[in-house]
Design a protein around this nucleic acid. Sequence first.
DNA 1: CCTGAGACTGACCGTTTGGTCAAACATCAA
DNA 2: TTGATGTTTGACCAAACGGTCAGTCTCAGG
Lengths: 213, 213
Amino acid sequence: MSDPNTRPNSRIQRQNREVILEAALDVFSAHGFRGATLDQIAAAAGLSKPNVLYYFASKEAIHLDLLSGLMDSWLAPLRALDPAGDPMEEILDYVRRKIEMSRDYPRESRLFANEILQGAPRMAEAIEGELKSLVDEKAAVIRGWGAEGRIAAVDPHHLIFSIWALTQHYADFDVQVRAVLGPGHDPFAEAGQFLEGLFTRLLAPATGQMPEA
Amino acid sequence: MSDPNTRPNSRIQRQNREVILEAALDVFSAHGFRGATLDQIAAAAGLSKPNVLYYFASKEAIHLDLLSGLMDSWLAPLRALDPAGDPMEEILDYVRRKIEMSRDYPRESRLFANEILQGAPRMAEAIEGELKSLVDEKAAVIRGWGAEGRIAAVDPHHLIFSIWALTQHYADFDVQVRAVLGPGHDPFAEAGQFLEGLFTRLLAPATGQMPEA
DNA sequence: CCTGAGACTGACCGTTTGGTCAAACATCAA
DNA sequence: TTGATGTTTGACCAAACGGTCAGTCTCAGG
């Protein structure tokens, strides 16, 4: 007995687990947990269904594996927000990192969105724990910047929500964005420019000084 | 044979169809199309499963009925944007109407989000037709306002996307918002205030004149 | 060559799911 | 009361689903 679920030792085990997770990300992000089937995942992975279940105990185990790996990388951009840096540049950098994530990892964004939409039944503790405490920590930093007059004094929690909403929208609602814009557009490039302007205007300190055009 | 699917005549038919649609909205918005079952819908409606199928031809027919009724009410707030009104006030009113919709009709918002997330398989034509043409029309109006210097000249399509993203976020990601804010908050009231400030700052004409605090 | 642990599969199982159907029940005008 | 129409249901079905299992194949180490 090799017990691949607890000890992914051999090369072939690591490799196949990787292939399965990749395929499952495709399927789960496109159809949701309930909408995805083991047969779809197995087919996408190029393996038989029993073989998939040889590497993961159940459909839910695959899903949990994806979600648990997701939270860390999802929080990384916010974690990188440096209290010692320049306030405006730190926040704009955060927005840029989030837009890049939406562009480069849209499936992860949709997997996350699917989970939250349905009440986050499998992520409740991570959201109320890890995520909340990180947000509270960074919100305090941003509130401090506002109190010092280094940026406009806006509610930091809702500022963070607005960054999430605006950046993830382009990944989660990709089909709608592309349909409305029509052909010949690069949604993520345009979004990057638009959001840079938006947050620059929003956060410009209210000292009567406008940022140069 | 009464054929309730094409002619909802009698009082009891209209009433039961209504009850079923209401129950289905609950279930579909919470679990997605695939995640919802006819038994759940029937139980929520207080009817037997065969009785539900007496009023609707199939599970998909219920879903389509909900979606088709949704598009109109979903576009209404944008449709009400008046080209002859005051630019800033028109856009702020639009934001207010959208926030109210997120607050009062979160299930509809989540139903919509679920559908778009999964590639809008049953709404593609409505999005590329109705929705796109309305957005293009209103975007032209907003672009005109920008060109006249009555508001800041921002990309009107992405302005509309940002309004969608910011307002719908509070309905679609409700559990996350509440978990992060913690108890003792009214997310929609706070969002209303925050977004009013955000769009006021964003759209203030760049005539060197800052809006009064 | 053999051996044995690891990797893989076809056949199968119990449950759930969307949907059907014949029969029963309700309602009401004639 | 009767009959006709509209409404409701228990029993049932085929397909799809997640998952199991006995057994086969593979292949490196001895």
